[in-house]
Design a protein around this nucleic acid. Sequence first.
DNA 1: GACGCGATGTAGCGCTTGCTACATACGTAA
DNA 2: TTACGTATGTAGCAAGCGCTACATCGCGTC
Lengths: 182, 182
Amino acid sequence: MASKQEGRALAIERLTTHVLATGLSQLSLRQLAAAAGISDRMLLYYFHDKTEVIVEVLQHLGGALTGELEAAIPPTPKRSSQAMIAAASAMVRSPDVQPFMRLWIEVIAAAARDQAPYAQIAQQIGAGFLAWIEARLSDDEPDKPATAAMILAMIDGLALLEVCSDGETADIAARRMGREPG
Amino acid sequence: MASKQEGRALAIERLTTHVLATGLSQLSLRQLAAAAGISDRMLLYYFHDKTEVIVEVLQHLGGALTGELEAAIPPTPKRSSQAMIAAASAMVRSPDVQPFMRLWIEVIAAAARDQAPYAQIAQQIGAGFLAWIEARLSDDEPDKPATAAMILAMIDGLALLEVCSDGETADIAARRMGREPG
DNA sequence: GACGCGATGTAGCGCTTGCTACATACGTAA
DNA sequence: TTACGTATGTAGCAAGCGCTACATCGCGTC
């Protein structure tokens, strides 16, 4: 018999992968349990609630992403806004990051309807993104918070565009963003 | 007894309002029927399917939006990319259009998971947006399709930002987009 | 060996889901 | 008046939902 903590941790680990792959829309307890390789009974033994499962999984996922982003675009050297737009828009459309962006869109869609607990999670992750961008902008940039917010909007928009158009259109938009002037 | 066509049209009318207000997440037949003021039995008499209900409602909603957009930003005079960004980002965040953008995010989130029929609808509406933007760009603009795609990404991104941050951040980002250079 | 306690299985509750079968009203045509 | 087709109500199905009650298993302690 594994301990409760061990089982819980393993479940989170496995569910992180599963949620990233399948999204938020089909998250019943039984499906989650199957993905974690346990019974729904055990899932509710490890976690108080379906909501608690989701919160933990999304937080774990946020942590994993943070690491990946740090590695993908290091905090130094600092970048001009143009360079940052180019780097971020390329990264956000890479196969590694794309699944997360899809999930990110789903979280925001749920948050837009005030579905607990997504609203709070969306704010958390959004703030993390903003900080991540701002930390990579050169100190020469005027009004870094505004520029960071603009860049975040741009890369989120690119992710949306990728879904609602053919991939080429998103490609074109990304390149166009890299050019002067906006 | 109203005719089938009349009942159907009235249901679409009422459901359009309802879906715009409450989103895609809670769309059970019984809830839809209640919103339309009829029984679920009648809803499935008017429509073949739950899917058909949703498709019709979203298409009707797309039509309504098209009209509103035409009025909000007339096709003439033509605009520079900067002016178009400013106009579109202001419009997209107006109280009239905001509910639609929230719904738009939800449709894309569903489309990202290939949930029928959202993938197709998202493509349709996305193409409409692109055409709408492009038609308002000055002929002096080089590479209008790319610019239109960029602007669409920007305003979609603004809508996301509005959900995952406080309203002020989206405000700042919108203003920053209006400045040179990107 | 008896006991206690954490870990796990089985079964099922009450509810919602999309959808259907059947019966009934009602207006019109013969 | 009868017959028929369209319109509508009532009831219910099988499946899935989140969650819980209860029994059981197996290990450590006395």
